[in-house]
């Protein structure tokens, strides 16, 4: 029995053959059929709601399909893509998403790592802090966006606090109605909402580092920054790569905050690719154009995560 588990699937079957030879073919066919019956619902649903829409994104992008059109979609070639690449909002969206991702990825992972280090100590009361840091993660992004929409007003909570701590010297801007502050405001809020999530992932990485590494370092008189630099940071390599990829994809998909807070404004300064796709596909019911945007978005995600995987590959 122990032998079975140490081998791969194919050899297992050969090892098991003598013992199961007495099983009749009918029993095996029944197992096969029952196996498919248990597998069937999940596979069918995944085909219907993941594979088909993915293929449709490809197909519909080259047609003139509309959501509630009486006519059948017809082939229009690259029209949707030509239109998209001539659309100024698309290029703004692309830049905005790049801006958002470039700031959010290091900021959010850095804040989260700091929090993880702070709660990765065996001291009473630390779990209380973990709970507080995690609260925004279980709060819906819609709720968070509304709350911060109120805090970001010209005479809102944030500006009142800024005025207080600077003794009235600094008066904050109308954060979300200003082309230069709208995106930073959304970045700050997004990091606030999601940092607790990645804190937990960093924490599970930190807890895999063997304690004797630190003990050995202590004996050698290595402490503080050096310990972080030469033990913690290299040991976190797999966690780091994982966090990089997940935050990047999450950042590229920016939508809810925009839809609740700014509707892409002011002057396209917070428009994003997914927001543009939803506006085209849902509000204007142009399924084909929205599919073209979705397809471009998917290719973008593939390229960015491919490049990241290449850059963070094992160099051995």
């Amino acid at each position: 029995m122990a032998l079975h588990q140490s081998l791969d699937r194919a050899p297992v079957r050969q090892v098991r053959k003598p013992s199961s030879a007495r099983r009749s073919g009918a029993v095996r066919r029944r197992e096969q059929a029952l196996g498919w019956a248990m597998l069937g619902p999940a596979v069918l649903l995944l085909i219907l709601f993941v594979v088909v829409p993915a293929l449709l994104a490809f197909g519909l992008a080259f047609t003139n399909a509309r959501l509630l059109a009486p006519y059948a979609p017809s082939f229009v070639g690259l029209d949707n893509f030509v239109r998209l690449f001539q659309d100024e909002t698309f290029w703004h969206s692309l830049l905005n998403v790049a801006y958002f991702a470039v700031v959010v990825v290091p900021l959010q992972s850095g804040v989260a790592l700091g929090m993880a280090l702070l709660i990765n100590v065996k001291v009473r009361g630390v779990n209380f802090f973990r709970t507080l840091y995690f609260l925004p993660v279980v709060t819906s992004m819609v709720v968070v966006s509304l709350l911060w929409l109120f805090m970001y007003r010209q005479e809102g909570l944030l500006n009142e606090i800024i005025a207080r701590v600077t003794f009235g010297l600094v008066h904050g801007p109308d954060w979300l109605n200003n082309t230069s502050t709208a995106m930073p405001a959304i970045i700050l809020m997004s990091v606030w909402q999601a940092a607790g999530f990645h804190m937990i992932i960093w924490l599970s990485g930190l807890q895999t580092i063997p304690a004797d590494l630190y003990e050995a370092a202590a004996i050698d008189g290595v402490g503080g920054w050096q310990r972080f630099r030469f033990i913690t940071w290299p040991s976190l390599r797999p966690t780091r790569n994982l966090i990089l990829v997940t935050i990047t994809i999450q950042a590229l998909s920016l939508f809810t905050q925009i839809n609740v807070m700014t509707q892409g404004g002011p002057l396209d300064s917070t428009s994003t690719i997914v927001f543009q796709a939803v506006r085209a596909g849902f509000q204007q019911q142009e399924t084909s154009y929205a599919s073209a945007i979705s397809l471009v978005f998917f290719v973008l995600v593939l390229i960015v995560s491919g490049v990241q995987r290449y850059l963070t590959r094992e160099k051995s």
């Binding site: 597998l39 999940a42 596979v43 995944l46 709601f49 993941v50 594979v51 088909v52 829409p53 993915a54 449709l56 994104a57 519909l60 399909a65 959501l67 994809i249 590229l252 998909s253 939508f255 997914v274 796709a277 939803v278 085209a280 596909g281 849902f282 399924t287 929205a290 599919s291 945007i293 979705s294 397809l295 978005f297 998917f298 995600v301 593939l302 995560s305």
Partner: peptide, 24 residues
Amino acid sequence: VILTLIIATLIVPFETLALPLVWW
């Protein structure tokens, strides 16, 4: 193979499926 194919579907973010899915 089935398990690998199931895991492979994870690379598609829901946001890219959502719009064609509405039509579908």
